[in-house]
């Protein structure tokens, strides 16, 4: 089983002309977990990943895998697998030939091509020209390319883009499995909700700079949790809450109580004999903190 290496960005900076695309970014990505690399479109995610992979030269700073730069890795495809965009194919070439070329270049056995095509579910389409592939199939072929050397590190740029619900479910399981096997998994996305169910850690960047770094749960702390409660008789419910000393506001879907524990609200209503129809914690605390971190919802 391949073991993951630690990805380490140290003061990495990229300037295009006078624009600071990536600004003094430093963070590490640990093996054995899925790390979400998040930020709005144009935040510098792709440029950062391309610097990591030696495709874009940093203006300053370094990015390494276990201390080694990508271009100095003795067996790059067997150390790091990367899927960057869904369109890096010659449309006239078949999936098998496409992968075969890079297997030759990396000195990998030809059976790996068949293996990874089966793994991503493209075995039946292996000998069709890629030009006729759907976006979802291209994403899978990109993943097959990333997997061809059975690498310990996976770097995936927006892998969920263009997948249908079945594909999304599949890739979530795939990411979890990879991390469970001890690999390092770094996945970028501009939508937290897209990767929320698969990631353990998040690295959030905005305008090229680090905005937040921590576990997924760490995003939840800044927002005061609220409970939404509603019933057929809103006045009676309001009185009961007031009597219990719970402050609230009236929203479209019910009363928004400034109280983190739904059980307490339920008990108040039960004690007052007030019928309720809705009782749940307000969702999207994560998305809200994410949007607050990246500077409002201007990318959406």
């Amino acid at each position: 089983m391949p073991t993951g290496a630690v990805i380490e960005f140290t003061n990495i900076t990229k300037t295009f002309g006078h624009v600071n695309a990536v600004n003094d970014l430093s963070f590490t990505v640990e093996p054995g977990r899925v790390t979400g690399f998040l930020g709005p479109n144009g935040a510098g995610k792709t440029t950062t990943l391309r610097m990591l992979l030696g495709l874009v030269a940093p203006t300053s700073g370094t990015a390494t895998f276990g201390g080694i730069r990508y271009r100095d890795l003795p067996q790059p495809l067997s150390t790091v697998g990367a899927a960057l965009e869904a369109a890096s194919f010659h449309p006239g070439r078949t999936a098998r030939n496409h992968l075969g070329i890079y297997a030759i270049a990396a000195g990998l056995p030809a059976e790996r091509v068949t293996d990874v095509l089966r793994k991503v579910g493209l075995a039946d389409y292996a000998d069709r020209r890629v030009g006729g592939y759907s976006l979802g199939m291209r994403q899978r072929l990109g993943l097959a390319y990333a997997m061809i050397g059975d690498p310990g590190v996976l770097v995936l740029d927006e892998p969920i883009n263009g997948l249908d619900p079945k594909g999304i479910k599949w890739i979530r399981g795939f990411l979890r499995d990879m991390a469970a096997e001890g690999r390092t998994v770094l996945v970028s996305s501009h939508l937290l909700s897209e990767v929320q169910q698969s990631v353990d850690e998040v690295v959030i960047i905005a305008k090229g700079s680090l905005a937040h770094r921590g576990t997924l749960a760490s995003l939840d702390t800044d927002t005061a949790p609220q409970v939404i409660v509603d019933g057929p008789d809103r006045d009676a419910l309001s009185d009961a809450l007031t009597a219990a000393g719970v402050t609230f506001s009236i929203g479209r879907t019910g009363l928004l109580a400034a109280e983190p524990d739904p059980a307490r609200i339920g008990h108040i209503a039960f004690s007052a004999g007030v019928e309720i129809s809705v009782l749940h914690r307000q969702k999207s605390g994560l998305e809200d903190s994410f949007l607050a971190l990246v500077g409002g919802g201007d990318s959406l």
Binding site: G54, E85, A106
Partner: peptide, 12 residues
Amino acid sequence: HQTLTPTFLANP
């Protein structure tokens, strides 16, 4: 066709 990306990943 942006195949420089997989090319340079396989051989930097």
